[in-house]
């Protein structure tokens, strides 16, 4: 099966078959990163541009490594060091890059919908690496790969997502994806950080963390996104941590073999206690490894592989 689409903009328009295809192919790519020579010649001569308008370490590095392990040429552009600071518009930057004839453009932007504009404007494939509080499809795919690897399946699992749901593109992409794959999703956080109408996405909404953790198979902790919050959404960090930090006490409410995940970067002691982040349930570093495999799979599939 081939991935018949030009762009990867969000999980909302992915089918179950497409998700399974990406996860299967990613599974085969994991082994490449374990080899002494971590490179295959598959995308020789292809060019991948990472266009990042927002700070990023893991996603950008992950895409760059994925491209390079497939022998594609990867070029990184971050807004702060590009002609964006000279006043160039998104359209002009896009058109300029298009003229250099890359094959795939990976884009992160603070505005929801920015990659969609590029996708319409350019003939190149666009991969959304996070647009505002909208979607972060590759994160959801790597999270689903991690769950599938660790638990063996996704269907029927109780997944609890805790934290700043309102500002989280990771939460949205995961809700779309996990719902399609048949998981039962609960979102949990202070009322101010639970967007109005989130229940319509097919999730259970809970403000009490202890209730949300009960019998959970998977717990996804999210970071407080201060950079997107323009007003006080809760009294203090200490108060937030006292109610919503995953720790050795409240993790006992979940299933015994619960899987703990976090998209990173972690704020230790705020949303997750250090002993849990580094503990036996944590799959946080595996998420990072799986991220490279998932991104390799997407680059491969968008370039026409199967």
């Amino acid at each position: 099966m081939k991935l018949v689409r030009k762009d990867v903009l969000g999980i909302a328009d992915f089918s179950v078959e497409e998700i399974n295809l990406v996860l299967d192919i990613a599974g085969s790519f994991k082994e490449i990163s374990q080899r002494p020579i971590k490179k295959v010649p598959t995308l020789r001569g292809s060019t991948v541009i990472n266009l990042f308008y927002e700070p990023s370490t893991r996603t950008r590095t992950s895409f760059e490594i994925a491209a390079k392990r497939l022998s594609a040429d990867a070029i990184n552009i971050s807004a702060s060091t590009s002609s964006v600071v000279k006043g160039e518009t998104l359209m002009d930057t896009a058109k300029t890059l298009e003229s250099m004839n890359p094959d795939i453009i990976v884009m992160r932007h603070a505005c929801a919908g920015a990659p969609h504009i590029l996708a319409k404007l350019l003939k190149q494939s666009i991969i959304n690496a996070g647009d505002g509080a909208h979607e972060h499809p590759t994160q959801a795919l790597l999270d689903m790969l991690t769950i599938r690897d660790k638990m063996g399946y996704i269907r029927g699992l109780a997944v609890t997502i805790v934290g700043d749901i309102a500002h989280s593109r990771v939460a949205r992409s995961n809700i779309y994806g996990l719902a399609k794959m048949g998981a039962k999703v609960t979102v949990c956080g202070p009322a101010m950080l639970l967007p109005y109408g989130i229940g319509r996405m097919g999730v259970r909404v809970e403000t009490n963390m202890r209730k949300a953790l009960e019998r959970a198979d998977v717990i996804m902790m999210l970071r407080m996104q201060f950079e997107r919050q323009n007003k006080a959404t809760f009294p203090s960090l200490r108060e937030y941590a006292s109610q919503y930090c995953l720790n050795a006490d409240n993790i006992r409410l979940a299933k015994e073999d619960v899987l703990v995940m976090h998209p990173g970067p972690i704020n230790r002691g705020i949303e997750i206690a250090p002993d849990i982040a580094d503990g036996p349930h944590s799959a946080i570093l595996e998420q990072v490894s799986n991220g490279v495999a998932v991104r390799m799979a997407l680059l491969y599939l968008l370039a026409g592989g199967q």
Partner: peptide, 11 residues
């Protein structure tokens, strides 16, 4: 990357 192949990538 040419059309016509029918094998899916495996481990």
């Amino acid at each position: 990357m040419m059309a016509g192949g029918k094998r899916k990538l495996g481990e």
